[in-house]
Amino acid sequence: MLNIIKSDLYRIFRGKGIYIAIILMFIIIGVSVFLMSPGYIGTTVMIDEDTNQGMTPEYLELMEKVSKANNILDIREIMKEHAEFDLDKQIIGANTNLYYLFIVVVFIVICVDLSDSTAKNTLSSAISREKYYIAKVCTVMIIGVFMTLLNNYGIYFLNIIFNGKSFSSDFIEFTKYTIIQIPIILGMLSILIGIAFITKKKALFNGLTIPLLMIIQLILQGAITIFHLEQTIMTDWELQYMISNLANNPSTEYIIKASLLAIFYVIIFNLLGYYSFKKSEIK
């Protein structure tokens, strides 16, 4: 099983796909850090007023000055003079962006192998389907966590370089927040893995996963509106909100809630993926 992980890592880091994903990641980080504001792919999430600094008079004054500024460099000057907050924590609150990069990772590790039939070479040798599945899951998770760490610490150090210590949080604290995010990241990865093993085809996988996040948000929001459900279902449990919440002084209770959800995702989607895979024909 270790061999399969090793061989996939060999193959992936020999190809181009992963490096493009990492470069894209750094571009997004760079832009976020430079603009001093977290960038979201897809639907912009309005950070709830209660969990943020609040609309203090200083904040309003700041925003007025910012809106009068003409270009980004001026904005940066103004921000640096007048504001002071943990920018890096805010940026990692937007880590749901990593979902789209994870699609690339799962695609390269799993979809390519199943869709192009190279899996038959592996499965006809001395490996059972269980070990194959577990190996793929491990590979995806290793790369996923690696990219998350790269992402987070990239943000941390770029932020210090560009914006100075006043916008940066304490290293230990930042590490704590990173670690808190890991379970739900694993949950995200498991969803993608499960879908990959169920669909087995490259086009179907892409077609399903790319809009998935947005579709779920729409459905959830729609259900909440139509059935008059609690808005907190959305703000506490939906993925994008959850990651943003976890970066914003979450309570221990919330951290536990999030971890349980993550474990739930990991177990359910992997079981689904595995049972679909076990019975299937290898093309």
Partner: peptide
Amino acid sequence: LKYYAIQKG
């Protein structure tokens, strides 16, 4: 083949 050689150990 190297990929598969690593896989097969």
